[in-house]
Amino acid sequence: MANITAEILSLDQIREIAITVLTAAGMDANGGSLIANIVTQSERDGLRSHGLRMLPFYVQSFQSGYANPVARPLIERIAPGVLRGDGDNGYYQIAAALAQDDLAGIAQENGIAAFTCANCHHLAALRFDTESFAEAGLIALMMVNSLSMVVPQGGVRPVFGTNPMSFACPRKGMAPVVWDQASSMMALMDIKLAAAEGRDLPRAAGLDSTGQPSTDPKAILETCSLLPFGEHKGAAIAFLVEVLGAALAGGALSVDNADRDAHGALNIKGGSTLIVIDPARFGNASFDDYLTRICAEIEGNGDARVPGDGRLKHRAAADSDGVAVSAELISQLRNIH
């Protein structure tokens, strides 16, 4: 593994760097603040692959003309329980922020609500798109499709994106349960991070140039052919995300790469669907007790932990001790702006 020197930064310093870089790239105050928050939260939660390392990709998307740095999304209610968004070729979170209050209100009114969004970009972890709903006592399930680089089980070429999904639900007296995961064996940015740090992957996550499973991140990045997790099971999840993300929302399919290739971008303008549920409207007054029991059965069960709870330990450490950030990355970001 390569020798990596690091600096300790506070969360405020990380956010300041992110805002400075995004503003210099042309984002307005609203959009820049939203994306900077996500970058900071990623570093806080130990999700380094989606934190400061993602800033050059945001900048590239603006400088190439692929994404709109001053997007003005449109949100419309097209059915009693459905909101539909047009992201104005900006980032999803800007549209989602406009829809959030109405979406929560519709879920509380009807028991369930959905928000689809197209003509937008997504480069962040999905957990931050669902967590706020769980903090308000709601359940949230989100999925978004991404550029094709996952080979279906038995296939020879990529069809799906890493196609992530996220789930969040409230937990009485504690932080919500929140997790997100890619449909691939590993997320693309985790593979990129391993390549940058000169280390092999813990398991075969993609194919090399000979078509063989490999743990070499550089070999996998050369072919852009990732493996689904759980073989055919992960491929089935990727299919589900493709349908509920791209098809339902009207976004680009994962294989629709022409526009992305022309701009040299990391992502496609895919589609996303966010489903929000109010458990209080589903008739089980003991919902909170069920969640407590489920989590109790996991905790203390060997080394098992509730999905997503690893982030809480990282949060506490980041709040008190700051975050170690590669000195090389800090230098790169300062040169960008």
Rank of each mutant, 00 (worst) to 15 (best):
W179P: 00
L248W: 06
A219C: 02
M186C: 08
V243G: 01
T215W: 02
A252G: 06
G211S: 10
H263Y: 08
M189H: 10
L291D: 10
A187T: 10
H232G: 12
R293M: 07
L248Q: 09
V243M: 06
R281A: 06
R199Q: 05
V241L: 11
S286K: 15
G211L: 05
Y290G: 14
R203P: 05
G271F: 09
G206K: 09
L226C: 06
M186I: 11
K218Q: 10
A246E: 05
S225T: 05
S272T: 15
K233P: 04
Q181M: 13
R260S: 14
A236V: 00
M189P: 12
L221Y: 00
S214P: 05
L244P: 03
D208S: 02
A249E: 13
N284Q: 15
T210V: 06
G270W: 12
G198P: 00
N284T: 11
F287N: 10
G234P: 05
L253I: 04
F282Q: 14
S184M: 05
W179V: 12
R260E: 02
L274P: 00
L207I: 03
A285H: 12
D288L: 06
V276F: 02
R281V: 00
A187F: 06
G270H: 15
I268H: 07
R203A: 15
I277Q: 00
A246N: 02
A205F: 10
F229E: 07
A196L: 01
R199I: 02
T292W: 08
G198S: 05
L188M: 13
V177R: 01
R203T: 12
K192N: 07
P202W: 07
D190S: 07
E197C: 03
P279C: 08
I220C: 00
E242K: 01
I275G: 07
G283Y: 07
E197S: 10
G270C: 11
R203Q: 15
T223R: 07
G211D: 01
F229M: 03
A236C: 04
A205E: 10
H232T: 06
D190Q: 14
A280C: 12
D208I: 05
Q212E: 13
K218C: 01
M186V: 14
S209N: 13
L226K: 07
V276T: 06
A205S: 15
L244C: 09
D208P: 03
S272D: 08
L253Y: 14
L221P: 00
D288T: 09
G250P: 13
L266D: 04
I220F: 03
R293E: 14
D289T: 12
V276M: 03
E231S: 15
D278T: 04
